[in-house]
Design a protein around this nucleic acid. Structure first.
Lengths: 281, 281
DNA sequence: ACTGTGTAATGGTACTACCAATATCGGAAT
DNA sequence: ATTCCGATATTGGTAGTACCATTACACAGT
């Protein structure tokens, strides 16, 4: 039986360990003994990222791989598990099941980033600074490249957001959702997918801070009005006005976070003095 | 024996499957049968990211976890493998070995990103645009916040880079290394760790394009001289000059890539017209 | 005090058996 | 002829056992 997977080469050191012991003829390359699983994962990963297996294609079943690599099924499962974790493959059960190559989703990258940010407990001021700088670039590009239709959508969306927040009891869930969609549309207008990814990643890693402006009644309406100003600035092709307005957004965000950290909650601040090695890697 | 890991709760549905079949008394929550491994991984992950297990601490041995979760060791290994893949734990062999909680390294995030970019075969022009915008922000911040000592280092590093590239046969490996170090120092001067991480991530995902300027003899020296100009601009606190010079860097980079794509190599361009859905997610 | 060796703990691998989910196909019922 | 149902084969998921390889550590011998 011939496979499309002859590129999955088998090193001479994966032959049954028990046999290895019997014929003690020196095996010169016990390289990475104790890491067979990782090795296999790397081989398959290389095959995938080099495009030797197209997305959607199916890898051999675990039992077939087992015999191809002359190893136990557990090792194969471990390797496949690692690839699944990386988002490179998807595993389906049942007949005609198996491991299918898939495109990595942005979600994996942003989850990885969010995990990192969470574990490091990054000072929000650092994130906000980055966010602001990205926002400014996006603004310029969105004005230059955004389609008229997109610009109208942006204004309409900001309008809806403002209306929702002017209600006595706004529905926060949909407010957050509208904010997120606006930001994504905003990024999309740059015509550069990388900015969309960055925006998504930041939202999963930073979202909670950004929501402070909406939950705080003092800032709520001003923030939405500001969004509308940004949108119209962009729609009318006024970069400097849009940038000023964005600046105001971040002034409010910083003030808002500061005032909240004065509350009995934890202290988040200390940004300007943070010249120490804290939070550095 | 009492553990520090009583938070690793065991659902009633993980009792030996064989028993499950014998006493057919309805188990109402077969939830996620066939996903026990993932469930366990999630439980442990939650414990880690919530800080219930401090970095450096050791998880119980696989065999102990096995009996705590009433499952097979394979499942435990699978769960631990997933966590290891995420960079949450590190596994050591031998006596006193086991799974140790560790801090997620930036490497994991950037590798994940690099994998994503590679699989998507992103048009380099998109990446360069992002890179340029980040560089501009970093420049401003570096001037404002960089220590005098760092500024001197930057100039000295750029000087060394230029000298190396003026040799008849520059050592490319060390050139790339110097360029990377300069960029990192540059980012470090912002006093904002997030910019350092972004810089690292971009270098692992974009590095190859950036190197074109050094491998191409036509641009080699001009690029290094330009770096030196940037560094002195920063050291002397001249943001506008530094920004102009950085602009020139990207003009050269784009020209360089364009001229190389005219060669028999693959065509990389088509940026301005790329309004289609290609390369979008 | 030093060195080497045994020993226990622990992850890594192999193998087997069985369970659970799924697709496919054939036959029965309509 | 069409539809439905059930048998069957394929394949991932789990359990369990046995053994190997590596490491830390204590203990004995020098």
């Amino acid at each position: 039986m011939i496979f499309a997977f002859d590129f999955l080469k088998v090193g001479p050191f994966y032959w049954n360990k028990r046999n290895m012991k019997e014929n003690k003829i020196a095996i010169f390359n016990p390289a990475q003994v104790g890491r067979a699983g990782e090795d296999i994962a790397l081989q398959i990963e290389a095959a995938i990222v080099d495009g030797k297996i197209a997305p959607g294609r199916r890898l051999p079943s675990e039992r077939e791989l087992q015999s191809q690599f002359h190893t136990g099924r557990g090792v194969i499962r471990e390797a496949l598990g690692a690839l699944k974790q990386k988002g490179l493959i998807e595993i389906r059960k049942g007949a005609k099941g198996g491991a299918f190559v898939k495109q990595i989703e942005m979600r994996h990258v942003s989850e990885s980033l969010a995990l990192f940010l969470k574990q490091r407990a990054i000072n929000p001021y650092y994130l906000i600074e980055v966010r602001e700088s990205v926002d400014r670039t996006i603004t310029t590009l969105a004005i230059a490249r955004g389609a008229d239709e997109e610009k109208e959508q942006l204004v309409a969306g900001a309008q809806r957001l403002l209306e929702e927040l002017q209600k006595p009891e706004p529905d926060m869930v949909s407010v957050f959702e509208m904010d997120r969609d606006l930001n994504l549309l905003f990024a999309q207008m740059t015509q550069n997918p990388v900015f969309e990814w960055i925006m998504r990643a930041m939202q999963s890693g930073l979202g909670s801070h950004d929501h402070a402006l909406y939950t705080n009644p003092e800032y709520r309406e001003r923030t939405a009005a500001n969004w509308l100003n940004t949108a119209t600035g962009i729609a009318e092709g006024e970069p400097l006005r849009a940038l000023s307005v964005i600046g105001y957004h971040y002034v409010m965000l910083r003030n808002c976070l500061e005032s909240e950290s004065d509350s009995p909650q934890e202290l988040a601040g200390e940004f300007p003095e943070a010249k120490t090695q804290n939070n550095r890697f």
